[in-house]
Simulated scan of single mutants.
Amino acid sequence: MKYQLNNNPLEWQPVAAPERTVLTGKFVQLEPLDTRRHGDDLWQALQGPDSDPKLWEYLPYGPFPVRKEFNDWLNAKQDSADPLFFTIIDIASQRAVGLFSYLRITPKDGAIEIGHVAFGRVMQRTPGSTEAIWLLANYAMSALGYRRLEWKCNAQNARSMRAAERLGFVNEGIFRQHMVIKGRNRDTAWFSIVDSEWPRCREAFIRWLDEANFDSNGQQINSLQALRNQ
């Protein structure tokens, strides 16, 4: 990929930090993390017998075999401003099915990251999982006016890297020996969507989530990538 240097002065003003707000879609609703309200559902979704055994493999914390440790972790996260955590509520069942956050929130530069992604097995590879990312991305890029939306993951986490590319993030390369996580080296893959790319990504998300893009069995008709390329 070729990059063009642009040193022209920007017509840019710092943006606001995201607020603890509710974001509602067709499949999911995002709510600020609240251990009291969401804890039982999140425990079942992320640690219960039907949870994804690979969920915690690349995260810097977990798993939490003891409920108190899990609650202590949630309590610490619910009061954090950066990262700013949201619980994902499945609208049909009204149950919490996952959580994720904004982080590295830098209003003066217009940069923000989506991370700490912990989706329960029940929401993985569903329209709701795509809509959850869309809701955070659209709030940051469209409503608040950020210039750069980031996604980072362990370079060995093939599942997260595939997800980033499917969602429209551009691979910017690998930071070698970037971190030590759980006693192991982590090379970090960096991805981003910048403001000049966002309108095309935004339109693709809207068209992908439209009910006309799903057949009678709930299967997609056009992929996100195909819609971005149209």
Rank of each mutant, 00 (worst) to 15 (best):
N157C: 05
A158V: 13
A158E: 14
R159S: 14
S160G: 13
S160P: 15
S160D: 10
S160N: 10
S160I: 09
M161Y: 01
M161N: 02
M161Q: 11
R162I: 13
A163G: 12
A163F: 13
A163I: 13
A164R: 09
A164V: 13
A164D: 06
A164L: 14
A164F: 15
E165V: 10
E165R: 07
E165L: 06
L167M: 14
L167E: 11
G168A: 14
G168R: 15
F169D: 07
F169A: 01
V170S: 08
N171M: 01
N171Y: 15
E172M: 06
E172R: 15
G173K: 06
I174A: 08
F175Y: 09
Q177I: 03
H178W: 09
H178P: 06
H178Q: 11
M179N: 07
M179S: 10
M179D: 06
M179F: 05
M179Q: 12
M179Y: 02
I181E: 00
I181T: 11
K182Q: 10
K182D: 08
R184Y: 10
R184I: 05
N185Q: 13
N185S: 13
R186C: 07
R186T: 03
D187V: 03
D187F: 02
D187L: 05
D187M: 06
D187S: 08
T188Q: 11
T188C: 08
W190V: 04
S192L: 02
S192G: 01
V194W: 03
D195H: 15
D195L: 14
S196E: 13
E197Y: 03
W198V: 12
W198S: 10
W198L: 13
W198N: 09
P199V: 00
P199S: 00
R200W: 04
C201Y: 01
R202V: 01
E203P: 00
E203G: 00
E203W: 02
E203S: 08
A204Q: 08
F205I: 06
I206H: 09
I206S: 10
W208Q: 02
L209K: 11
L209W: 07
L209G: 08
E211K: 13
A212D: 15
A212T: 14
